[in-house]
Design a protein around this nucleic acid. Structure first.
Lengths: 229, 229
DNA sequence: GAAAATAAGTGTTTACTTTACACTTCTATT
DNA sequence: AATAGAAGTGTAAAGTAAACACTTATTTTC
């Protein structure tokens, strides 16, 4: 047999649908848009696009997130492939990726261009096709990942306060965390650097800024230890 | 815009590649075969097939595993989509699934038909394309899943001994487990039923058989408790 | 039929991790 | 000078995980 072996096989459109997450007002937000074309025109949808012949699926996802946010150094991970029959008019198999972005870097002119907006994860409307399922699976995956890898920092600016970091994890796990226990744990890993500057925007006392130091994290791993929240 | 929107998009062959796992000789085994066609003819390969137009990707995976094992009540889970450019001569995007089967139910005539064989996971040869990566990701996923869900039983016959169950987990985690701690933990969940019969095949004393009772597991969950090894 | 061989089976102690919990400090505002 | 409000701090108790060695049941051997 030769390449002709493939000839009688079916071919499919492949979409990438991206769960683009940002952190705003102490909550995870997801970028969604009104779908501009049929089918399901006008329905709320994740940001998506089609895979092109000469790009990998990972590259396609990176491209799509770049198109819709203007950001291109992005932490992404695949959620999985979704391929039920009734997903679309034409058969489309979709591969979902979540992306963690610093919402401050978001190019807001693109929100206008694509009729997109950031919506709190707790207040998402019903999304088209299986997009709601994709979000559900993403949150699941994110909860497992964020517990053992320092990926949460991708959602924050370089400098952040511990109260902010804590509320990020509270939003990811959707449950309250004890302030003392949280600080004890994150600081004991010695992967953060305390800065002299304070953020005074949310209290009179002000909260000190910290930075995540990747080198210190790498050291931790080299010692056979693990990140864990 | 209408369905015509899709018209200028590229289409792709979609394969499902299945990491079919069985448990034999106290070790996880994976079913692999010599590839019968080009490209990479003769290379070691996972069991795979192409997705057809009128089946979901999950159904395609079930079909493929059925074809190669003769078993059709199968625990499966998607590992993820693999879509690098150099995977094949023609562009093929592949979706990997792992399947946990009771190797006793395996139809051995199919092994002959497809030139397939069970190979210990610790002794796998280099596989074609990104199949080795798929196996690696599967073991990773399986380790995380098996720790919190009672999926290991899918690899065993209905009756099994605790020493067998333990060696299954040891093979999944690729590390030794303390016998007393293991028994304490698994028995404390009260999801197994001890039978009167013994397996005398591997010791003079013989080891009692146990059965996994799904109803007891469901009860556990209802009580807000969790399976955990 | 007694002794040996071998895997199955059994509890307790120690270390570690997680959870629960309340007051003081800092600083802007009144 | 007093007040308001979030930031910041430590300890004790409970629960979980890890370490560890001998007895039991049965077949095989002599």
């Amino acid at each position: 047999m030769t390449a002709a072996f493939y000839k009688n096989k079916d071919k499919f459109y492949i979409a990438v649908d991206c769960i683009i997450m940002g952190f705003q007002d102490n909550e995870l937000n997801i970028l969604i848009a009104k779908r501009p074309f049929e089918p399901m025109k006008g329905g709320w949808s994740l940001m998506g696009g089609f895979v092109n012949e000469f790009e990998s699926i990972n590259d396609a996802a990176k491209r799509v997130v770049g198109e819709f946010t203007g950001i291109d150094d992005i932490y992404m991970e695949q959620v999985g492939a979704f391929g039920e029959l009734d997903r679309d008019l034409e058969r489309v198999i979709s591969i979902a990726y979540y992306a963690l972005v610093d919402i401050e870097k978001f190019d807001t002119t693109l929100a206008v261009k694509y009729d997109a907006r950031w919506v709190k994860i707790t207040q998402l409307p019903e999304l088209i096709f299986d997009h709601s399922l994709m979000v559900k699976n993403t949150l699941n995956l994110l909860q497992r990942r964020a517990a053992v890898k320092p990926i949460g920092f991708n959602l924050l600016q370089e400098q952040f306060t511990l109260p902010t970091l804590q509320s990020l994890y509270e939003s990811i796990y959707q449950e309250d965390i004890d302030k003392r226990n949280f600080r004890k744990k994150i600081l004991s890993m010695d992967i953060l650097e305390k800065l002299d500057e304070k953020d005074k925007s949310s209290s009179r006392k002000g909260a000190f800024y910290y930075r995540f130091i990747k080198e210190k994290y790498d050291q931790l791993i080299q010692q056979g230890l693990h990140f864990s929240i």
